[in-house]
Write a protein that binds this DNA or RNA. Structure first.
Ligand SMILES: [Zn+2]
Ligand SMILES: [Zn+2]
Ligand SMILES: [Zn+2]
Ligand SMILES: [Zn+2]
Lengths: 159, 159
DNA sequence: CGGGCGGGCGTTACGTTATAGCGTATCTGT
DNA sequence: ACAGATACGCTATAACGTAACGCCCGCCCG
């Protein structure tokens, strides 16, 4: 498997961090050093990263940290909608959207290269809402994670 | 939370086990004692049950078992399409469908009573297929798990 | 200004979920 | 009977996640 991490250019990383800071400031949430560092590590990874991998990198950077350190930061970032949790992988990715608010999320997960693409399809959201309302179910959160092989990896395998 | 388990009547349980046996026999898969017992325990639970809870019950029943015992049985049952894994809960449920073959699956998960309803909505499947083909993604498995509050619990809360 | 309050964090300890790896037994087909 | 495949027992360990307690610091109010 290629396993290439789509490292964003440094400029984009800085931009996303700046926007995250602005979003937090706007709603009175405190993006502390630890939280900011964890977000930065997730964005740098460019692919889903687990809590303990984050912890390792956090310790490399700042010499400190225990599991609760990183889980607390993750909880904050999730609540702010700055990252998402990929249930299938027990891992986390930066939110790819411009919007600075929580939103329903759907993923395409490539089993070959490990790449995860975030998308938001209105038809899926509508279909979920329909099936739920039909049975009186009140939706709090919907998880849509599609496993398979991305176009790039499929081409490599076929060629 | 009510936490009532929807224990199926014994007759239905026996029926489902019989059909599982038939399905396995038909395709040359061996539903051994352990596998059959694990399936039975899952069906008896009537709600999602974790691997270690299964292991406890398995030990109660037969006096033996370690984690790999139950995980191997689960792998088999998943491959046969007799059970499903609920990613959000790290737990397993019996397949509710009559069909004896693997199929895409969607869940409504009630956060109040813990009940999980399996359904299969064509519109969701179509929407997923559309979004995937649009980007050349080859779908292997699609996970759709909707968290919220079931009609029953919503009524209780409102009343 | 000082005291109370709440959020953020350090730390210990533990709970839960899942797999690797290896040896033995059992089954299947020839 | 024999060879190969499948199933299982077992030890150990990896990987993921949380409870609970106490300290510190900034903020607010009297
Ligand atoms: Zn997002
Ligand atoms: Zn790929
Ligand atoms: Zn099913
Ligand atoms: Zn309910």
């Amino acid at each position: 498997m290629p396993a290439l991490a789509h490292h964003a250019p440094a400029a984009e990383l800085a931009d996303r961090l700046t926007r995250a800071e602005a979003a937090c400031a706007q709603r009175g949430a405190r993006l502390t050093d630890i939280r900011r560092t964890v977000l930065e590590l997730i964005l740098q990874a460019g692919e889903p990263i687990g809590a303990y991998a984050l912890l390792d990198r956090l310790k490399d950077k700042s010499g400190q940290g225990k599991p609760p350190t990183v889980y607390r930061a993750l909880d904050f970032l999730l609540a702010q909608g700055l990252i998402h949790r990929v249930e299938r992988l027990n891992a986390f990715v930066g939110c790819h959207e411009e919007a600075d608010h929580p939103h329903p999320v759907q993923f395409l997960i490539c089993g070959e290269c490990g790449n995860v693409a975030e998308f938001e399809d209105q038809a899926i959201g509508t279909a979920v809402a329909t099936i739920a309302s039909r049975s009186g179910f009140v939706v709090k959160r919907s998880i849509v994670e599609v496993e398979g092989v991305c176009a790039e990896c499929a081409t490599l395998a076929a060629g």
